[in-house]
Amino acid sequence: MNSTLLVNISRFILLLAVQIIFFNNMGFLGFIMPLPYILFIILYPVNGNKSGLLIASFLLGLMMDVFSNSGGIHTTACLVLAFVRPSIFKFSFGVSYEYQTIKLNDVLTPERFSFILISVVIHHFTLFILEAFQISFFLDILLRAFLSTIFTVISCIIIIYLIKPNKR
């Protein structure tokens, strides 16, 4: 049992609990819901086991679906985010990201912000398109995804600042 594994397991449980108890009951204007539980996928170690990430995000999404009666939409969106995560890293931090020591839960820089933003946008658009499943709601989907993205990004950054380890 190394500490990275323990940190990840506790992060998985804590984020899920916070999401279900607190953020799921929080409807701004009736329909905007921040989903900061995807921080688990965002904060997963850069050089961590990729199959482990896929399986963990599958389980994370499945738990969300069980708790919100939503079929498989969270599962699919989390899987898609976990799969494209290396490409987002490449986009935000440059091609040689694997050889740098990237720490995401630290002071906000443009690279870190763009990484979080792109991840949230990809996750939310997959989620909301699958949720409606109908072209007739297209404008509605765009509006929801856009507003929820803003709130998720804000709540993610707040959580990162709250749990940031102060080693100075």
Binding site: S51, L54, F58, L62, T75, T76, V80, A82
Partner: peptide, 17 residues
């Protein structure tokens, strides 16, 4: 692995719709 899990999740989504 991704395609396998994606298949499962899409199945869950579609059949719930």
């Amino acid at each position: 692995l991704f395609l396998l899990l994606l298949g499962i999740s899409l199945f869950l989504t579609v059949q719930s719709h």
